[in-house]
Amino acid sequence: MALYLPIAEMSVNIFVLLGMGAAVGFLSGMFGVGGGFLITPLLIFYNIPPAVAVATGANQVVASSVSGVLSHFKRGTVDIKLGFMLLIGGIVGSSIGVWVFSLLRTLGQLDLIVSVLYVVFLGTVGGLMMLESVRAMMRSRAGGSVSLRRPGAHMWIHKLPFKMRFKASKLYVSVIPVLGLGTMIGVLASIMGVGGGFIMVPAMIYLLKVPTNVVIGTSLFQIIFVAAYTTVVHATTNRTVDVVLALLLMMGSVVGAQYGAKVGQRLRGEQLRALLAGLVLLVALRLGYALFVVPDEIYSVSREFLL
């Protein structure tokens, strides 16, 4: 069934998009991630203009994060204070990011930069995760216990001033890395159309030493607001949020996520991480390949430019 997207200005198949949402939702439920990093590249592969894909991806992330955070609130695995501090950084970062996004668009480099950022971040995160999970699998086979948290291993980050106490996370750290991390994620969120969970979660675990059980809930909590803010800013400055497209993706992903979560509970942590890493690497490879392959058409026409 064909549907006309009012902002992307193209006809799409309604079932393809619902299916795309459901597939990403399934995976995000299974792995406990927002899925923005899968939605945006998939939309680009489906010929949605990258500017629309990014802004609409941010909107979809709001829905999947709201859906995800509710169960974390119920279990009390959200550090609201930490989430709030990350959020302050996130708002600043998102504002910078949207500005950069507009600039890149007028320079004609947006599509390239979005692809490059995806390749770099997905490649790095996917590669590290793959290494870590393979090692963990080997260790657990050898009979050792697997723990992501290594308390006591203090780094330079923990020597910075302006320390703050985060009770739910049992942390006493400087706000500088917290705000810095939030800002960085905010910039990425607005340029890449992602929630940033795939960077936020490892960064919180390895850099801030946040306990694993509150990491996902806290990350989701702050992503909701950063993604919501990013959506509004994209809507007002670039006018590239396609609400019809977003609605289709949201409906698909929210349903898919419920089934994904059930499957995820049956898999073991290391296996799950290895699978996710494989998926992330696959998306990175596909996007990277497109950068090097000779394009069919070297000319393009655009309305966005600076005189």
């Binding site: 979809q60 709001v62 829905a63 859906s67 509004v232 809507a235 977003a246 949201m250 929210v254 349903v255």
Partner: peptide
């Protein structure tokens, strides 16, 4: 758009 996302996310839950 954001309100819609909240609604869909909550409804799904």
């Amino acid at each position: 758009s954001v309100a819609l996302a909240f609604l869909v996310g909550w409804l799904g839950r």
